[in-house]
């Protein structure tokens, strides 16, 4: 059988400074799982499998359960987001004001679906439910910055500006 030795192959010697610190900060009780995952998501921009393994060992929770938690909550993602993460609000107030059109345009322009990242790693898009800026509906956000009273034209401008910045 070929699988005998347990060595992480990524060259990190099995440890990671951020995760070490995280484990120091929280007590090893299962209740802390979601809190810790929130920090992992914040730090890496996604939840790497490595982090899931460390939490599994530390909190004594099987990896399948951690994976079950990660895939349950929409805030946690398993893949890195793009440099620019664009979230379109599909909450009711924005929906009624036509945010679906913004989302459709975004999908058309970037040729990806919500939850995906463009091949060059520049853009990712997601659907979000109410960022609380209903007064500005419809809204979309780029890396958390809110663009209110959005139109397809405004989206195009923003996309062009962001793409232009990179060239």
């Amino acid at each position: 059988m070929e699988e005998e030795k347990k060595v992480c192959q990524c060259g990190c010697n099995g440890r990671d400074e951020f995760l070490d610190k995280l484990c120091e900060e929280y007590k090893p009780i299962k209740d802390n799982l979601i809190q810790m995952l929130n920090e992992v998501q914040e730090h890496y921009g996604y939840v790497p499998i490595k982090a899931q393994e460390v939490l599994s060992e530390y909190l004594k929770v099987p990896m399948a359960e951690i994976y079950g938690v990660v895939t349950f909550y929409s805030r946690f993602t398993l893949k890195p987001k793009g440099k620019y993460n664009i979230a379109v609000c599909l909450g009711t107030a924005c929906y009624v004001k036509g945010s679906q059109k913004i989302m459709d345009r975004l999908k058309e322009r970037l040729k990806i679906e919500p939850g995906e990242t463009t091949k060059d790693g520049m853009f990712s898009i997601e659907e979000t439910r109410c960022v609380g800026a209903c007064g500005l509906a419809p809204v979309f956000t780029v890396n958390g910055e809110v663009y209110g009273k959005a139109t397809v034209q405004k989206l195009d401008q923003v996309l062009n500006a962001l793409s232009g910045k990179e060239e």
Binding site: G91, T92, G132
Partner: peptide, 10 residues
């Protein structure tokens, strides 16, 4: 508060 379009609690 999760209702899409509600932000009272916030």
């Amino acid at each position: 508060e999760g209702d899409p379009g509600a932000f009272m609690d916030r």
